[in-house]
Design a protein around this nucleic acid. Sequence first.
DNA 1: GTTCAGGTCCGAT
DNA 2: ATCGGACCTGAA
Length: 272
Amino acid sequence: MIEITNNIDFDIRKTFECGQCFRWNADENGVYTGVAFERALSLRQDGDTVSFFCSESEFNKVWRSYFDLDRDYAKIREQLCVSEFMKQATAFGKGIRILRQEPWEALCSFIISQNNNIPRIKSIIEKLCEMYGEPVQNPGGQSLYAFPSADKLSALTESDLASLRCGYRARYIINAAKAVSSGKLDLGTLSKLPPESTRAELKKLCGVGDKVADCTMLFGLHLLDAFPVDVWMKKALAQHFDADFDLAVFSPYAGIAQQYIFNYVRNGAFMQ
DNA sequence: GTTCAGGTCCGAT
DNA sequence: ATCGGACCTGAA
């Protein structure tokens, strides 16, 4: 087990519940368990101490980067405090960190998320993992599965995904898997292109528009300036920002700003 | 029965 | 270029 102490800027609940990911779940004791990079992890938090139930080498090799622990979010929040609203949003979201999720998982998950609600999104993704993901070792006992590879999904047909009940998105998933698996879309080099090209490449996929492309960039490619705008963000921008507001003031962290704003308008009334 | 949910596609202007 | 309707699904 690894403990991070005196940890003033990492709140695992906020990080997992702020809407960026779909596969981390808490048990009745507040212990979160999830899977990434074909590994299961459980972790818990007491005050400013976060305990990772894994070896030190695994923590350093996988999870330190996954949780973006070497970035100074306090400093970024200072930059983002350009208005009273942003002061409130950043204060409310203090402790959120943008996860470095796997590119394919992010792309596929946000394709599934379109015009859908969160409980269904989660259940579709879990079913997808149970059906086609590789089982991972889990000291905690319960069966856990990795997110299925694009290669694996590229060999499926829409009828193979029928039991997911994901509707018209099944076609999008398989098409995207084929593009990635064949190399037509190279997720490995995508983040090295100019951001507008990255976005354009993603949007070539059927079922990937602005929102899904931006979520893939922010959450899957860790391009922190990507700024996904969904219905909640539209409302927030209309209500709390001038019409001529220039997002460039958030650069290069517009995506982190987005997450604070989204979390504040979406969860503000219910969490604290 | 209707509406809604972290949008996108497609055809009509 | 922009706009509106259709779209799988299942919970409320």
